[in-house]
Structures are given as structure tokens and as C-alpha cells.
Design a protein around this nucleic acid. Structure first.
Lengths: 227, 227
DNA sequence: CTCAGTTTGTTCTCTCGTTCACAAACTCCT
DNA sequence: AGGAGTTTGTGAACGAGAGAACAAACTGAG
């Protein structure tokens, strides 16, 4: 799914582990806010909704940050994970497509608090260029390259309709963006070295629907056999 | 991740395959709209952004719907996948939490076109109960059980702040909802037999940030060694 | 009818991820 | 100091998923 650069430098962390690190980070932040100074792998695993063995193995890829017989120092581990993910400082982000979803994303407060800063909102529709959303001007899409260069943007968010998404992705790539979060319901094709992650509402719902149907079928069968 | 009922009836389809079926379905719909009547696994795989061997293996779990030497009948396969997922008829859905994101979700046109019908929008805040969003009244959260029973709702969407999400989930479960799509940035705990899927914007961004950082580190190293 | 060409369905292998189980390392109490 | 009780880090077994490769099954031409 994710393109790899040929130069795999240090110990590489499994993709599945990377996907869980942000969950651990959030759990640690919550614990810290509650005043907890130390926690065991069991506690943290419960807070993150995973198995404690898995948690320990995941953390072991980062290094040996716990103390046997004691557990993990919440603040210390939090910093180590944040550093590993790379959210000890803010990443500039551009959002393209300021429709319903784009509005919601721009207003999402979790952005700034979790290591991201929206530096620009772009839309191809001139009617939107007057708007100010979440304190940021909506600018013409054409300014993408300029803005990306100015702020050193590496991460772009696509919240356009499906038809526009591939064009937007192409322009992002030429603007030097190497990581794309795609909310448009379409498959993007990008050159190697560019990461794309997809968030697709209706796919998620369809997966749920599949399981609902399966459960319903199982129940019907159970009813039948008990009758 | 996903809770299983003990009664696994028919041939069970791997979770990874289930997650891709909606992608194939979408690709088939696009092909059908373009007037394509038949397609090979290679074509469909390209459209869906996967390897053709994987596609064929995925489809083989559903049955033998292709013809060797010819390929797949687009309309037929489309129907079979839709039937397998369970989106040949509409599923009633409730959305709880009508903030920025809830608005966007309620207005998302992909809902109805992809097998889902929003039967209710709920919010705990009385100030929102006057609103009509996307043609649906916003109702008090307390009416959840009543509405769920009336429409036979099995799927709920949580778009509330993190703090409210667990309460909402608990109420959904007592209201008979067995599948939850959670947009709140928190881990939900639900009884066995209830499926939860999580969509978390800042986690996706953090995963991207990790890869950006890794790429940057790799580049720095390459620069250094070439100097 | 036969044969060349095409494309599916499936088997086999390899990689990746999860879970168990336990030794190593720490704390605290006596 | 020593021993009981905890908790981490990791080796090993196990299971799931990805991809290659190929036999089986179809089409169409001659």
C-alpha cells in the first residue's frame, strides 16, 4: 500500500506498529492529564484498546523505555513516541476542497493540538475565495505551488469531489508534497515515494453493513435450528 | 479488532477481503457508467488500485463469477458484490453529534447513493433542535431508543466530541445498534458482538507525518554520504 | 474438430503480524 | 542481604495475508 524509499535507514518499525503509535500517544496524553506519572503496559494497553503483549512489542521497536517491575514513565514515553512519529514540532498542512467536509476539517481543533498547522485552504471555485474559514483565507487552487514552497508543506489533504481528486493529487505532487490524505472516494495514482492514505466514509459503512448482514444471517439460522 | 459471533455460518470471507469489496464495487459502478460490459481481472484490479492476483483471490471467496478466457460481466459481478456486502437495499443510519463534522456527514451525498439512508440526526444540545440539516430534523439525543426501534436501525455514527462518545456508544448498544462508526478521537469499549470502526483524522495525519520524517531522514543521510 | 491464445480459479510459498510464555530486571518488605 | 512479588522485553509458535505461478476452462480461427 505504502511506497517505500529504497534507503531504509535505521531499525524499521513495522507498518502495523506505526499505525498504533498515535493511539498510544493519545492514551498517554490522557493519562498525563489525569496526573498519572507511571503506568504499566497493562494499563496503557487497556486505555489504547489493545493486547498488552502487542503494546510491549510495539514499544520495543522504539527502544527500551520502560523499567521492569515498575512500568513506563508517562511523560518520558509520551515524548519518545511523539519524537518517533515526528510531532514534537508542527507540520504545515494544506487542505484542498472547502465544501462541507473541507469546512469541518478546517475547523477541526485536533489539528493544532496534535502537531499540525493548516497554512492554507484552497478551492478551485472562485465563489469561495471571499470566505474565511477557521481564521484562514480560502485561496485559489492555482496558488498551491507557491504556498507549498513558501511554507515547506509536505502534507496535503484532499477534500474535493471524486472527479477533481486525481488532478489535485497530481498538482500536489508537482508542488513537492509527498504525503496525501485523501477523502475523495476514488483511487489515486501517484509516483513511487509519495504516500497516500485514504479515508472513505461509505466504504467504512459498507464494511459495517457486511457484518450486520452476516450477524443477521447467523441469528436467523440459530432461530431456525432452535424452532 | 472486530468482535466475532460464535456462529460463523457459511464460508467466511477474510477481513482484508471484506475491506476491499467496496472498492471493487465502486470500480465496477464506474466501469458500468462508462458502458463497459465485460472486464478482465487485470482491468478491474488497475481500476481498484490492487494486484490482479489479489483481486481474483478476493472474488473467489464469493464464488466463481467469472468466465475463463473472457473475464467478468460487469453488471453481474456488481450485483453479486453488492449482495454480498448487503447494499442491495438501503440501511437506516443515525448520526449523533451535529457539529461541523456531523453537518458534513449529513450532507454527504454518497450516503444515499451507496446503500444508506440517514433516518435521524441527534444532538444533546437543545440549541440545535430547531435546525434542519440535509432535509432531516435534528432531534434530542434522548429519542435515540425510540427512533432506532421505529426504523430498525443497526448502524450508528458517532460525530461527537471525545468526552461524549463512550456514553453515546453505550446508549446506542442499549438501543439495539450493533455496528458503530466512530469519528470521535477516543477508544470505545463495547460488548462482544458489537462492531466498531474508527475514523480518526489526526491519527491518519500522524501516520503520514511519521513517513515524511522518515523520508527526510533518509534524504539527509543520502546527502551526507554523497558529500 | 483441433489448436493457439486468453483469462480465471487455486495452490504454494513467503512475509508480516499477533499472541503466548518466560527469563531478566526491578522494587519492596523483612 | 535475601526472597517474594511485579513488570518489561523478547524468543518462538501460530495465523493471516500477499504474490507468484500454473492448471483448468473458455473463445475463436482455420
Amino acid at each position: 500500500m505504502t511506497a517505500r524509499t529504497s534507503n531504509d535507514t535505521a531499525r524499521d518499525i513495522p507498518e502495523a506498529t506505526v499505525a498504533r503509535l498515535p493511539i498510544y500517544l493519545r492514551a498517554l496524553i490522557t493519562l498525563a492529564e489525569d496526573g498519572t506519572e507511571t503506568c504499566s503496559s497493562e494499563e496503557l494497553a487497556t486505555a489504547a484498546g489493545v493486547n498488552s503483549a502487542k503494546l510491549r512489542k510495539d514499544l520495543s521497536y522504539l527502544g527500551s523505555y520502560g523499567t521492569r517491575g515498575v512500568g513506563y514513565d508517562v511523560e518520558y514515553l509520551r515524548y519518545q513516541i511523539a519524537r518517533e512519529i515526528g510531532v514534537t514540532q508542527d507540520w504545515p498542512v494544506v487542505i484542498v476542497g472547502i465544501g462541507n467536509l473541507g469546512h469541518a476539517l478546517a475547523n477541526y481543533s485536533g489539528f493544532r493540538s496534535r502537531g499540525f498547522r493548516v497554512v492554507a485552504l484552497l478551492d478551485a471555485d472562485p465563489d469561495r475565495h471571499d470566505e474565511v474559514v477557521a481564521g484562514v483565507d480560502v485561496r485559489p487552487f492555482d496558488e498551491l505551488e507557491e504556498i507549498a514552497a513558501e511554507h515547506g508543506v509536505a502534507i496535503g489533504v484532499i477534500a474535493t469531489p471524486a472527479l477533481a481528486a486525481q488532478d489535485v493529487a497530481d498538482r500536489m505532487v508537482t508542488a513537492g508534497i509527498t504525503s496525501i490524505l485523501n477523502f475523495a472516494p476514488t483511487v489515486l495514482s501517484v509516483p513511487a515515494g509519495v504516500d497516500v492514505r485514504k479515508v472513505d466514509l461509505s466504504i467504512e459503512l459498507q464494511i459495517l453493513a457486511f457484518h450486520v448482514q452476516r450477524k443477521a444471517a447467523a441469528n436467523a439460522l440459530a432461530q431456525e435450528s432452535s424452532a
